[in-house]
Design a binder for these strands. Structure first.
Lengths: 205, 205
DNA sequence: TACTGAATTAGTACCTGGTGATAATAGCTG
DNA sequence: CAGCTATTATCACCAGGTACTAATTCAGTA
């Protein structure tokens, strides 16, 4: 028979080990011996069984991830991926809701992420040196869930030549269902060119 | 006389060294000897003079930075630190604008981060199982810059017992200057307080 | 009872990517 | 030539491991 009285402690230790390293990847094997009250060899056997790399490898992996992340997230001025952009006219971006965007208990996206996509797009679509959100009126029409792809469409409604404000409407869809709508007032820097090409008027709403 | 014919190569090498490590922090001293055609001792003397830590230290620093970033950005359900919370009444949170929150060119905070703080607080202040932003009307009164501390104050204006919507006003200040105001409509789940488990609000999930 | 076998512990050799110290050399320069 | 800087060469040592072999413990059982 399998000595379950012996087996349990090992599995429990494995669970503890995973938990400890999860919440502090910077721990050395020697420190783990003090936490788990077993020899360093046992720690190393455990790591092997669990496929946990050594401290230096863990740090290297984290560094590589963050190196990529810094390049792709922080330097990125836009939340979501812009797939179409006609400056001063319209734009489309796609943003997939991942687990870091949702309430973990419910799997529902936190509102400010949906807002962030729309806000980024509204700013990006303005063809000017500086564009800042000045005001917004927004509606969350239905909650967005983990894994759903949000497609935001922005339309510049007015960017009248001399003025320093532009109005942008953004509608966000999941599939063909509208989940968010926002009306943004974007402040723009003075130096705009005098092209007033957009004859679009409010053909919606 | 100073042997500038000798000095220049050294300074040039230092510049190269800085550039190489900047764009690839994962390089070892041994690899650098091949790139710079000098001995490994020279590489190490150069690193010392330039105050560049060894590979493992560099990786550790990157890992720590990314670890903090993950903790503060992704795992946190609330943007900003809540310093006071009176459920269904009011709340205060503090959020410092860091470089990942600003337009790199101008140093001005992107609107959705300021919004995120306010939105998080508006949701947190509602004492209910589920609270979701339903709509919001917001104004960015002045731009917020890198390094500024945003203090958001939320007030629940109506949470009439049976209703499923609450109104929350949030005002964000830098010093005594108001930089943002928002009027939120928060959807809440049926029960005003589910007495099923005790300290609900302790779990941020 | 003695045997089996998993789990644990111990010990050794070796590895990478370094630090720190000391000393030898190269190359120019006044 | 001496004097100087820069460079290179060794050597001992370190942390935090891997890889391997061997001993010990301890429960279950044939």
């Amino acid at each position: 028979m399998v000595p379950i009285i012996e087996r349990q402690p090992k599995k429990q230790r494995h669970q503890q080990l995973l938990r400890i390293i999860e919440e502090n990847p910077f721990v050395t094997d020697r420190e783990l011996t003090r936490l788990l009250k077993v020899s360093i060899q046992t720690i190393r056997l455990d790591r092997m069984e669990l496929g946990i790399p050594e401290l230096r490898e863990r740090l290297k992996l984290m560094a590589e991830r963050s190196y990529d992340a810094v390049r792709s997230l922080q330097l990125d001025e836009v939340i979501g991926e812009i797939v179409d952009l006609q400056l001063d006219k319209s734009g489309i971006s796609i943003f997939e809701i991942q687990k870091e965007h949702v309430f973990s208990r419910t799997g529902i996206a936190r509102g400010h992420h949906v807002f962030a996509q729309a806000n980024s797009l509204a700013v990006a679509v303005i063809n000017d040196e500086i564009a800042l959100t000045s005001a917004a009126d927004i509606r969350f029409l239905r909650s967005v869930r983990l894994g759903e792809k949000c497609i935001a469409k922005a339309f510049v409604r007015s960017h009248s030549g001399g003025k320093s404000k532009a109005k942008v409407e953004v509608f966000t869809y999941v599939g063909d269902e509208m989940v968010f709508q926002g009306h943004f007032v974007i402040f723009r820097s003075a130096g705009e060119r005098a092209n007033e090409g957009g004859s679009e008027r409010a053909d919606r709403d």
